[in-house]
Write a protein that binds this DNA or RNA. Sequence first.
RNA 1: GCUGCGGGCUGCUCUAUCGCGGCCAUGGCCGUUAGCGCCAUGGGUGAGGAAAGUCCGGACAACGUAGCGCACCACGCCACCUAACGGGUGGGCUGUGACCGUCAGCGUCAUGGACAGAAAGUGCCACAGAAAACUAGACUUCCUGCCGGGAGGGCUCGCCCUUCUCCGCUACGGCCUUCGGCACGUAGCUUCGGUGGGUAAAGGUGAAAACGUGCGGGGCUAUGCCCUUAAUGUAAGAGCGCACGCCAGGCCGUAGCAAUACGGCCCGGGGGUAAACCUCGUGGGUUGAAAUGUCACAUACACCACGAUUCCGAUCCCUUAAGCUGAGCCAUGCUCACUUCAGGGUGGGAGGCGGGUUGCUCGCCUGCUUGGAAACAGUCGUGGGGGGUAGGCAGAUAGACCCUGACGGUGACGUCAGGGCUAGAUAAAUGAUAGAGGCCCGGGGCUGGGCGUAAGCCCAUCGUCAGGGAACAAAAUCCGGCUUACAGGCCCGCAGCAAUU
RNA 2: CGGGGUGUAGCGCAGCCCGGUUAGCGCGCGUCGUUCGGGACGACGAGGCCGGAGGUUCGAAUCCUCUCACCCCGA
Length: 127
Amino acid sequence: MLSYTFQKGERLKSRKVIGALFKEGKSFGQYPLRLVYLSVKERRSEFPAQFTVSVPKKKFSKAVARNRIRRQIREAWRLNKHRLYKVLEGEERQMALLVIYVAKEALPYPEIERAMRQMISRLTKKR
RNA sequence: GCUGCGGGCUGCUCUAUCGCGGCCAUGGCCGUUAGCGCCAUGGGUGAGGAAAGUCCGGACAACGUAGCGCACCACGCCACCUAACGGGUGGGCUGUGACCGUCAGCGUCAUGGACAGAAAGUGCCACAGAAAACUAGACUUCCUGCCGGGAGGGCUCGCCCUUCUCCGCUACGGCCUUCGGCACGUAGCUUCGGUGGGUAAAGGUGAAAACGUGCGGGGCUAUGCCCUUAAUGUAAGAGCGCACGCCAGGCCGUAGCAAUACGGCCCGGGGGUAAACCUCGUGGGUUGAAAUGUCACAUACACCACGAUUCCGAUCCCUUAAGCUGAGCCAUGCUCACUUCAGGGUGGGAGGCGGGUUGCUCGCCUGCUUGGAAACAGUCGUGGGGGGUAGGCAGAUAGACCCUGACGGUGACGUCAGGGCUAGAUAAAUGAUAGAGGCCCGGGGCUGGGCGUAAGCCCAUCGUCAGGGAACAAAAUCCGGCUUACAGGCCCGCAGCAAUU
RNA sequence: CGGGGUGUAGCGCAGCCCGGUUAGCGCGCGUCGUUCGGGACGACGAGGCCGGAGGUUCGAAUCCUCUCACCCCGA
């Protein structure tokens, strides 16, 4: 049985790690998303990856729109993260992931989910 | 009934699956208890009328506190509501519009008013205009004396009287879109100018022209006399006087808590602008949850204060004292012994018991070695300072709270009674998928009606099938207002149109 | 959460404080001249209702209120 939950330990909350992500993380774009990732030495929880979302305020000035996009991206991650977990299992290190929404308009959910699946498969191949 | 405008209320509902943040209960990780954390299960709960903009006012907190003033900022008819307000309610005054009404006036309704002061002072009022503001003085097609000129009349040919000193025309130039026109300028023509005094009425301009109207030279012993410019006569004698009216000020009376209204008396002021400076009155201590308190982690270090301690050594004292590197590992250095020509190599620099800890540690005994204290200075500890790490908890969600009813009040609102608990996140919780119902849109198909031979065209209440749409927008310490955005639905008021009675 | 600033011609800016003519300057643009041609240069010209709405005033880019957009600062 696959786990479709999104628990506390899976959320990236450390200001330090997020700062390091922007400073030395690798990234690639998968329209309308962009992924920034980095391997972290010490594990902060028992999960193989921690995940967070960012929606720029410059493109979506209304908080309602930002909230909706963030929730949709998180939903797509929740339903597809097991593909990445399977690969990362058994590794000591932890993966920090940051997804940025780069499109100028709010796109429907199916497009976001498709981009999320392709993004995960690309990340899997790179490792 | 439809349309438009304004105001108030509301701000789609349900089901299934997978998920999220708080709260409560149970269980597991979990071991002696408790706490924290994570997970699972169950229960219950989870954005707004504006959560928004951050335009005001408070609560709360820190700092300051002996009180006051200046500066600065905000507000400004009156009363009330309120914790408070620049918010609200009611009233007054005033502008605009509509209606009743014979005009004026009065009244009713709707709507707007930064609605204290322009008689405290300063500034400004472009262009145009004589003048744009203390005292009022220059100008003109105004009045008049003198000199000069023209016309007419009288006549003693010396003079005297009356009247005019304007209207206009032409040429050239300038401006405007042609014809053509002009508050335009210059020169000339027709018989017409110069100069002195006075200044009441009037002066095409302008947003605004000295409050409006009427009468009047001043004084006196008053049908006359006197005086001033200025002189025989004549004229003007004044931005002055009086009366009434309008507005403003002071006092009094009546109604009203008051603003104010009405009436009377007195005073003797009159352009606008205070969203120009300003004056008066009232209010504001400053900074703001990134406030503040507390716990944990981490406290390297320039520096300061206090305490303890000790290398050399003047001095003082005399065995109840001090020491035996480092918690551990590795490396280097120190000291002792042995060895080597030297570089170097080997070995030693303590042992035991007890308390206690993740760890640093403390006390006692044995063994070995050594004399100790003392200003400055060094070291250690504590506090401050400064730097760094940046988390947990409190603040922080039961409150100027919500609902219902009664009572008081024109109303905003208040009082009482009963009931209810209604988000508390912190890289930040409400989502995704599928389906159903209701609402709206436009009119495609069916359907109904009308016209037409027909093709077809037009109209549409209801029904039905397929389709599309559902706004503005999300807490971040809390609360009361204001402003702004908003699809659809319901209710109320006003206006217009149509139909019926 | 709090504070400050800017919107004026295609672009970059003045003018605003202290209201008054036809809102100026540079670059750019158009036409003409110059040149064999281009550039440079010279002459002439077009292009604005001052972010939006309302108000004060005789009169508003300027003063006041509300609002929209953008930029900057504060741990």
